[in-house]
Simulated assay, not measured.
Amino acid sequence: MFQKNDHCIVNRKNIKPQKVVSIPVSLFRSMQGKYFVGQTETLWVGNGSNAWAGLVNPCNSDVNLYVNVFTISNFSDDYLTAEIWLNTNLPEKGCISNNVFPTNTALKPLPKNKVDIRFIESTNKVPEKGVNVYQRIVPPNTTLVSEEDGKFIESPGGNYVIVIKSSSSKLDKVIVAFGWWEKSRC
């Protein structure tokens, strides 16, 4: 008969404890070279404009995207609203961030991400498709951190997008960062 005891499983028959180790899935994916982090350039919201930032899984990626964490750094004195959208229509003029890197830099060669961080510095466009799953308030001069733990999974062609809005008449400075892992669909 087996019995759980703190961090060991004890087999009462043989009385030999076995150590059980539990590691977070993000660490496990990082050890495999499948965890990535990155951020946008500076985004500007207010005076009637929004900013968009998101993880975009290209149609030909052959991986599922698992959203682990996002942060929104608000460098202004104004409250901002962040809308989280799934599978929305990104405007054509979005940029791809060059500020993306694998978290396991011990691997050689370094793993290459298939999912992109895309962003739009400032636009008056709003999402026309997709689902706004929730909203967050971002207080002035703070960084909002939201851990999703991989529960949002986007297949090739899908995306996880944050639309940031401000009711201020002046432009507010924002930077968005993401952490995610990628897993082959096969």
Rank of each mutant, 00 (worst) to 15 (best):
residue 94 G to Q: 09
residue 35 Y to A: 15
residue 66 Y to G: 05
residue 29 R to S: 06
residue 78 D to T: 11
residue 108 K to F: 11
residue 80 L to W: 02
residue 40 T to L: 07
residue 96 I to N: 10
residue 130 G to L: 13
residue 84 I to H: 06
residue 136 R to C: 12
residue 91 P to L: 04
residue 53 A to D: 05
residue 148 E to R: 04
residue 91 P to S: 03
residue 107 L to H: 01
residue 103 T to F: 00
residue 48 G to I: 07
residue 148 E to C: 07
residue 81 T to M: 08
residue 96 I to T: 14
residue 64 N to V: 07
residue 164 I to S: 00
residue 36 F to H: 06
residue 92 E to H: 12
residue 135 Q to C: 12
residue 32 Q to W: 05
residue 14 N to T: 15
residue 146 S to F: 03
residue 86 L to F: 08
residue 175 I to G: 04
residue 48 G to K: 03
residue 126 V to C: 09
residue 116 D to K: 15
residue 78 D to E: 14
residue 138 V to D: 00
residue 185 R to H: 08
residue 82 A to Y: 01
residue 61 S to W: 06
residue 57 N to I: 02
residue 23 I to R: 07
residue 118 R to A: 09
residue 119 F to H: 13
residue 150 G to A: 00
residue 106 A to T: 13
residue 113 N to C: 09
residue 11 N to L: 06
residue 55 L to T: 00
residue 132 N to F: 06
residue 25 V to E: 10
residue 102 P to C: 03
residue 35 Y to K: 14
residue 185 R to K: 13
residue 57 N to T: 06
residue 170 K to D: 10
residue 9 I to S: 05
residue 12 R to T: 10
residue 96 I to P: 06
residue 96 I to M: 14
residue 76 S to N: 05
residue 75 F to A: 13
residue 25 V to K: 13
residue 7 H to Q: 12
residue 26 S to D: 11
residue 7 H to V: 11
residue 16 K to P: 01
residue 181 W to C: 00
residue 158 G to L: 04
residue 71 T to G: 04
residue 174 V to F: 01
residue 182 E to F: 04
residue 72 I to Q: 03
residue 42 T to Y: 08
residue 104 N to E: 06
residue 162 I to S: 06
residue 88 T to V: 04
residue 95 C to M: 11
residue 143 T to M: 07
residue 106 A to K: 13
residue 128 E to S: 15
residue 140 P to R: 15
residue 44 W to Y: 15
residue 18 Q to W: 04
